[in-house]
Design a protein around this nucleic acid. Structure first.
Lengths: 213, 213
DNA sequence: AATCTTATTGAGCAAATGATCTATAATTCT
DNA sequence: AGAATTATAGATCATTTGCTCAATAAGATT
């Protein structure tokens, strides 16, 4: 017996006629669709194709976004927003936790966030087209994440060598490259990148004599 | 006194009228211009803009290439061709040379080849758009370069750990990422990447106990 | 049930764009 | 120098594409 409310509400209604949605909701639906669409075909994808995929008229898009560029801007914001969790700087510098654990926790969490089709492709596309948000994101990443990582490794280093910022970018790049191979090049990749990440982090720490438990 | 022939022949003639070139030469000129153009604006750049940059009519382009896609294909071939020097597999496996020297020689040579505006951007653009040449290139890279590198490091390894193919891709990705930051993200980068490369290679070799002179 | 509000549609415009075709003039050959 | 060849230009076509606007109907209100 169905006592938990209308299950049929979860069934997608294939009603071919027009479907009237609250503007807020429709706007979000368009953005979500646009993210998936532009990730797949690039920002030169045609608004008519996007509309067709949404099951909606092309002219409707321009009711919610004055221009295509404005829609793309909304896509940027939706994708870039909250990708850098605000608590990472604190967690990365919490010296009550072994540095290796902090780094592994960060990169495993971060990689599940960014090793996603839509993020990877929109990130690279927007980088290619010189989007301001892209440069801002990388600057934030450097300042809020990588620079603290540098200092933590410096602090924990037991060897005479100490890492440079370029070394940190190298560590980071090697890891990000997994996502690039997966979603940009569409090359065969390990299903679970965490072992490659672990090994990369361990090699890095080893080079600077950081204790690894 | 000018006795060494007509110097003025090296002066670029700003003749505004039509300039008739041998087809072979014009074709090459168009390809070269297209490489620079598409690298800058992406493959959705307009043929009219390309023609204007070349100082030539748009219709002329279609005299040399039946379609825009055919032109792009020619751009791919021009850019991808001979990027992987055929002697690297041999040089990388020449055990009369210390492994570290071989790796450093390869990556310094390879990085000067690929850390270039046009290559980097066309490589990434073509990867995004799923070009077949891109996947073929990466497959070749893996088979002809990275797999030998793996075996050489395995052979030279003095630690109990031995690298995996994923580790090699990680080494490679960390290095390539320099070029991505430079030309895709247009982020501040070291003028000379060779010190970062050297340090990355040394960290890698250290992790597997390879002698480093 | 009738009315009102407005989200959505469908037709269509103006500019952009890939591609075509004929006229023109640069270069070569005789 | 004149004729022949053909690389190039200029005009133009057929679609495509971002965008507009008046008409329509879905859902809320009374």
């Amino acid at each position: 017996m169905d006592i938990n409310g209308p299950v049929e509400s979860t069934v997608i209604e294939e009603r071919p006629g027009r479907r009237r949605l609250p503007p807020q909701e429709r706007r979000q639906q368009i953005i979500d669709g646009a993210v998936a669409f532009f990730a797949e075909v690039g920002f030169d994808g045609k608004t008519r194709d996007l509309a067709k995929r949404l099951g909606v008229t092309q002219s409707l898009l321009f009711n919610y976004f004055a221009t295509k560029d404005e829609l793309i801007e909304a896509v940027y914001e939706h994708v870039y927003l909250n990708r850098l969790a605000p608590d990472w700087p604190d967690r990365l510098t919490d010296r009550s936790v072994p540095l290796r654990d902090r780094l592994l926790a960060f990169y495993k969490e971060y990689s599940t966030l960014i090793f996603q089709y839509e993020w990877m492709r929109i990130f690279i596309s927007s980088g290619l087209s010189g989007a301001e948000l892209n440069r801002r994101y990388l600057k934030h990443l450097g300042e809020l994440i990588l620079k603290p990582v540098l200092h933590e490794i410096e602090f924990a280093a037991r060897s005479d060598e100490v890492p440079t910022m370029e070394d940190i970018w190298n560590l980071h790049g090697g890891i990000v490259y997994i996502g690039i191979r997966q979603h940009i090049y569409r090359t065969p990749c390990p299903d679970d990148p965490s072992v490659a990440i672990t090994r990369a982090v361990d090699r890095f720490l080893l080079a600077f004599g950081v204790e690894q438990g």
